[in-house]
Amino acid sequence: MAPENPTAEPLAELTIQTGFDIRNPGETLETILRGARLADPILEGPDGRKYATLPKEFTLRELEDDARLDPFPRQRVTVDDRASLSAYANRYSDSRSIIIADYDALTISARLDWHHHNQDSDQALRTGPNEHSATLKLRPSEEFMRWDAFVQKGFHDQETFARFLEENSCDVHLPDPATLIEISRDFEATVGQTYKSSTRLDNGDRKIFFESDSRATHDVIVPQKITLRIPFYNGEQPSDIEARFRWRAASGAVQFRLEWHRVEYHRRAHFTEIAYTASEETGLPVFIGREG
């Protein structure tokens, strides 16, 4: 005997395969609309605000995984002095941590989650995330920037040169500030006078002779060099830095300038000293260089 509804069995099979009950058009249409909303759930309203259209029964549930490790810290900290760098590194460092000192960038960085070293029997040479660090960004001190700008400008007339020396005499270690102020005032006294001659003294200083309109002769002793006692970097201890006096005469006028003496050598040495001091304070190995 033939079934009452010969299409019932094929329709049931199609419902199982597709998930749609095509025998109920209303349910099928609702399922299609829901699928369309899930494919592109974000709608933008007329006021520019955005909305997400999701079914009410949808909930967010965490999938537990007993084998999953805790997330590692992701933090990049920039500090302003060595003491802060050492304190931060001592708080968060472990056997992986190292210090990388990059002179070109003037940075000393404690990489706290670096790679495991080759003596670690459990995780030898395992790559670290390198996501947690504290970096000291060294900045030139205000004193060094002021003197360096004056040096880089080259030759100056007597009045400008004398005024700068007098205003910044407190930064000078040798000769003493009082002597330097006296020299600067001697420079000012000869402004407008005509250069006549010069003589090198036994100690390497130079005596320069000037003549006024009244034929009166004045002399100024120019030291061979001066020694500054200023910090290279902000927040660091002062260093002794030498600058050589240079002068030239043309058309009866004299100009003066200062030239650094091996200043880059001393800057690099002081940078290395800061890096190794941080290493001593933290017990971390230091590497002079940069990441490739």
Score class of each variant (00 low, 15 high):
Ala36Lys: 11
Leu228Arg: 04
Ile208Lys: 14
Asp122Thr: 09
Pro25Ile: 04
Phe209Lys: 15
Ile22Ala: 04
Ala101Asp: 04
Gly235Leu: 01
Pro223Asn: 02
Thr272Gly: 02
Glu188Cys: 00
Lys153Leu: 08
Asn118Cys: 00
Ser84Pro: 00
Lys137Ser: 15
Arg215Cys: 11
Ala243Thr: 07
Ala216Leu: 12
Ala2Thr: 09
Glu280Gln: 14
Pro25Leu: 08
Lys56Tyr: 12
Phe155Val: 04
Glu236Ile: 08
Asn234His: 13
Tyr92Ile: 01
Gly235Asn: 08
Pro10Leu: 09
Gln158Ala: 13
Tyr195Glu: 06
Ile208Arg: 13
Glu242Phe: 05
Ala269Ser: 11
Gly235Tyr: 03
Pro177Cys: 09
Thr78Phe: 11
Tyr92Glu: 11
Glu211Ser: 10
Gln17Val: 14
Phe144Cys: 07
Asp113Trp: 01
Ala110Asp: 04
Ala89Thr: 05
Ser214Phe: 06
Ser239Ala: 13
Leu54Met: 11
Glu143His: 11
Pro285Lys: 00
Trp147Ser: 03
Ser97Leu: 01
Ala87Ser: 15
Gly48Glu: 05
Arg76Val: 12
Ile42Gln: 08
Asp157Arg: 11
Thr227Cys: 09
Gly289Phe: 04
Leu63Cys: 06
Val254His: 06
Trp247Asp: 07
Trp114Pro: 00
Lys153Asp: 15
Thr190Leu: 04
Asp148Ala: 02
Gln224Ser: 11
Asn130Phe: 06
Ile32Val: 15
Gln158Ile: 15
Asp148Glu: 11
Ser184His: 03
Glu291Met: 07
Gly204Glu: 02
Ser214Ile: 01
Leu201Cys: 00
His270Cys: 05
Val286Ala: 07
Ile98Lys: 13
Asp219Tyr: 03
Tyr103Cys: 05
Trp114Asn: 11
Phe144Glu: 02
Ser121Phe: 08
Arg229His: 12
Glu131Pro: 00
Leu85Phe: 01
Asp47Glu: 12
Pro238Leu: 02
Trp247Tyr: 15
His117Ser: 04
Asp102Lys: 06
Leu29Cys: 05
Glu159Gln: 13
Val220Trp: 02
Pro41Met: 02
Ser212Arg: 03
Asp47Cys: 08
His116Thr: 02
Arg163Tyr: 06
Thr107Ser: 05
Ala89Asn: 06
Gln152Pro: 00
Glu62Pro: 06
Trp247Ile: 12
Arg257Lys: 12
Asp120Arg: 10
Ser212Ala: 14
Gln158Gly: 09
Leu11Val: 10
Ala110Cys: 03
Ala87Gly: 06
Lys207Trp: 00
Glu13Ile: 13
Leu258Tyr: 01
Ala52Lys: 13
Ile208Trp: 02
Ile42Pro: 06
Thr272Lys: 11
